[in-house]
Design a protein around this nucleic acid. Structure first.
Lengths: 253, 253
DNA sequence: AGAAGTTTGTGAACGTGAGAACAAACCGAG
DNA sequence: CTCGGTTTGTTCTCACGTTCACAAACTTCT
């Protein structure tokens, strides 16, 4: 895994983007475990929800329930950020919310470009959850001239050739790929060359990127297939048969 | 976690749906590790791609590269399914592809309902990756009468009230939720009551379901936030400053 | 047939994550 | 001020996942 161009995918649960274990020189470098990082946005959302209901403080138990995890895990996750709670009392909702937002980095604004404005691209462009959480879509790009000029969610679709200029001018660090699979790697290469260092990939395609670039993938059909696996097991189990036997028989066939 | 209605979310990397550890009576029960299950669809896709290029056999190294993992992990994953390779030679592409497809359960056809046909629902309904991989969308449901009747990808949008009848008649086991967050739990409850036992949730909302029901979530803004976290660390590191110091200073403020 | 070269499958070491349990710290009542 | 109740932060243990390393098994060449 020391090639200059290694795919940074894998991980334990479908989508992922692990940083190289030894990204820095120091051994620990105050690193928050990846599993915890993935849960922080969930806590943030739960806190926002509590805040909207004018809740001033909450216990780890309440917050954990709202976030769908157990309280021990929650407390351990929060302990990586620091000691922001008060024993015997709980957490101040607003304070904790700000601390998590700061740790994730969503107190600042992140400009984002979306490439590939098909069905999915349209949905992403219209998704309000981005702007409300520190992300600002600065451009919608598509290689197809027929689509260019069309207005989607208040933004015009522009040529993919505008990419380099855009990234430089607006300091875009995050790109979203919503193109067909066969175009994904080329688009990815252009994004990286233009200076994008974080990519969210919706195309069903393994992307290979140089070190220092993070890729996370969201793959709809993979999620369904994982569900299908469990569903199949359920129906087999329901049939009251011994799973090993069935598998053994099927394999012989 | 023994409540009759426990949220089955969490997991190490964003989206997930762990089964209860002791789902069956036996200790092992030929269970394939969850992390492996999540990668099988990736291998399946890589094999399909190789097959389309008329490749008859491949080594674990080749397949691993195509799937974006390292070869040791690939071999270990495949070893949970059985011994389908030949030492000194590699794997027969077609044979292995069928074995993985059978293990996942995509050799059969899975009827799927999609609830909530907004922007995202439209995109999902038009996504060709479902049908080509063993999933058949049997209905698009929406509670909004204004949307009902509209044709999306060859299917008419129907009333959400048709759900129960549909699930029974077509033996639907998998449901996709693409509604706004505030409707998600209600829709989820209706789906479960109707007999759906696997749910793919796109709404930014923690769902609570009874035991025996699997939920996987796909959350776009969470993925972006995870990227933002790493992006922030990158820019701090690039500034050449000691991360601990910066964090310490910011926290005092 | 035997030797040399490949490649799989797996045992063992290592690292990471989850959960239980508990001491430390805080609040409020008396 | 002290005591009892509450809740956090942390330690310890166990389970899971990843990676290394190598024997077993196969092919090919001589």
């Amino acid at each position: 895994m020391s090639s200059p161009r290694s795919a940074r995918n894998g991980g334990s649960d479908g989508s992922s983007a692990k940083r190289t274990p030894d990204a820095g020189a120091k051994p620990a470098e105050r690193g928050i475990p990846e599993a915890t990082v993935a849960r922080l946005p969930v806590y943030l959302r739960a806190l926002t929800s509590l805040s909207e209901r004018s809740t001033a403080t909450c216990s780890s138990e309440e917050l954990a329930t709202a976030a769908g995890v157990n309280s021990a895990k929650l407390r351990k996750d929060l302990s990586y950020l620091g000691s922001y709670g008060t024993r015997g009392v709980g957490y101040d909702v607003e304070y904790l919310r700000y601390q998590i937002a700061r740790e994730i980095g969503v107190t600042q604004d992140w400009p984002v470009v979306i490439v590939g404005i098909g069905n999915l691209g349209h949905a992403l462009a219209n998704y309000s959850g981005f702007s409300s959480r520190g992300f600002r879509i600065v451009a919608l790009l598509d290689a197809d001239p027929a689509r260019q000029g069309e207005d989607v969610g208040g933004l015009g679709i522009r040529s993919f050739d505008d990419l380099e200029q855009l990234v430089e001018e607006q300091r875009v660090a995050i790109g979203v790929i919503a193109t067909p699979a066969q175009a994904a790697q080329d688009v990815c290469d252009r994004l990286v060359a233009a200076g994008v260092t974080s990519i969210l990939n919706f195309a069903p395609q393994v992307l290979s990127v140089p070190d220092g670039v993070d890729v996370r993938k969201v793959d709809l059909s993979i999620e369904l297939q994982i569900l299908a696996y469990h569903e199949q097991r359920k129906s087999l189990a329901e049939a009251g048969a011994d799973l090993e036997t069935i598998d053994a028989i099927e394999k012989v066939i």
